[in-house]
Amino acid sequence: MNDVLTFIISRSNYIIYILLMMLGMYGIFAKKNYMKKIIGMNILQTAIILFFISISAKRGATIPILEIHNDHGTHATAQAINYINPLPHVLMLTAIVVAVATLGVALAMAIKIYTDFKTIEEDKILSELEKNAKNENG
């Protein structure tokens, strides 16, 4: 019991990331509506981002903007232990912007589907496609 509690307290961010990832996956798998699927996809992306930002955190460190005010910093070198790991931040910064790009494309596809089928529910679209296929064959 004690082990479980220490696990939860020391790794709470990882648990939340796993929860969000399951939530996003559930949204993609189980929801029939395309808008809900897109929201699920975005939640999945943010779960990954949360994971990356969590591994970059450092206790007792500050934000990765150096506090050196001389011209080229030749005299004082920054100690890496005092600053949060900036590399995951860079990767995730670009990932967020790509997330909005994929969101835009996904919404464009949803609108296109709506103009063609007048619905964005997956089961209705599938049944309509089946009906069309039957009409063509028979």
Binding site: I55, S56, P64, L66, G73, T77, Q79, Y83, N85, V90
Partner: peptide, 26 residues
């Protein structure tokens, strides 16, 4: 994650690029 590549970026960004915001320089 914080022990291999990122210390280089933090310690050398001022001497290499003179940009204090490490995220921007990386």
């Amino acid at each position: 994650a914080s022990n291999h590549l990122s210390p280089y970026y933090i310690e050398h960004t001022m001497t290499d690029t003179s940009v204090p915001n490490v995220v921007t320089s990386v």
